[in-house]
C-alpha cells in the first residue's frame, strides 16, 4: 500500500509498504531517516520515540498505515522544530536544539542508541514543564531505557537544558 505523511515538515510518500510494517520501518528503511532507533520493537525502550501530531509515541507500535496524513517529527527534525518553537526565526540560531547541545555538554551520550528517543521525549517534557523537579524528569523519561550511562548524565543534561532555557527567557 501507499502511505503519505509529513515528516519533519516535508511531505513524504512511501510505496509498496507491507501492511504489517511499522512507522519506524518506514522512517528507517523507506524514507532514509534511521535516526529513530530499533532497539526493542515492542514499546519497552523508547529509542524510537517520535512525535505524532505533536505527541510522543513509540514509532515501532504505530502501523505505517495509521500514519497516513499525519505529522511526524523525528530526531532529524528536532533542531528545526525547536527553532520554530522558540522564535520562528532561522537567523543566527544554533544548529542543534538546546536539549541536543545539553546532551553533548553533559556527557549524556555514550553509545548513543537511546539518545534520539530520549531527546524527543525530553524536549517534549521541557515544552510543557520548563522547570521540572528531578522526580518530574525521571517520570517523563521512564519510558526510555539507557544501558550505558546509569542516567546520571542524562539527568544533568535535562537540568542543564532547562536552566539554559530559563536563562534565555
Amino acid at each position: 500500500m501507499r502511505v503519505n505523511l509529513t515528516v519533519n515538515g516535508r511531505p513524504q510518500e512511501a510505496d509498496d509498504v507491507w501492511e504489517g510494517e511499522s512507522l519506524l520501518y518506514v522512517l528507517r528503511e523507506r524514507l532514509g531517516l534511521p535516526g529513530s532507533k530499533n532497539a526493542c520493537e515492542q514499546g519497552e525502550c523508547g529509542s524510537c520515540t517520535v512525535r505524532l501530531d505533536g505527541v510522543p509515541v513509540c514509532a515501532c507500535l504505530v502501523a505505517a498505515g495509521q500514519a497516513e496524513g499525519r505529522e511526524v517529527v523525528t530526531v532529524e527534525g528536532l533542531a528545526e522544530y525547536a527553532r520554530q518553537r522558540s522564535s520562528g526565526d532561522a537567523g543566527d540560531t544554533p544548529d542543534l536544539a538546546p536539549i541536543q547541545q545539553a546532551f553533548i555538554d553533559a556527557g549524556a551520550v555514550q553509545c548513543g542508541f537511546c539518545t534520539p528517543g530520549l531527546l524527543v521525549a525530553a524536549d517534549e517534557m521541557l515544552e510543557h514543564n520548563p522547570d521540572p523537579s528531578d522526580a518530574d524528569i525521571r517520570e517523563a523519561l521512564s519510558g526510555n531505557l539507557c544501558r550505558c550511562t546509569g542516567y546520571e548524565k542524562i539527568m544533568d543534561a535535562v537540568r542543564l537544558a532547562a536552566a539554559r532555557q530559563q536563562e534565555a527567557v
Binding site: G43, E44, G46, V55, V57, A121, A140, S142, G143
Partner: peptide, 9 residues
C-alpha cells in the same frame, strides 16, 4: 500503564 509514550497511544 507502561510508559508515557504508551499512555499517549
Amino acid at each position: 500503564v507502561a510508559s508515557p509514550q504508551i499512555r499517549n497511544r
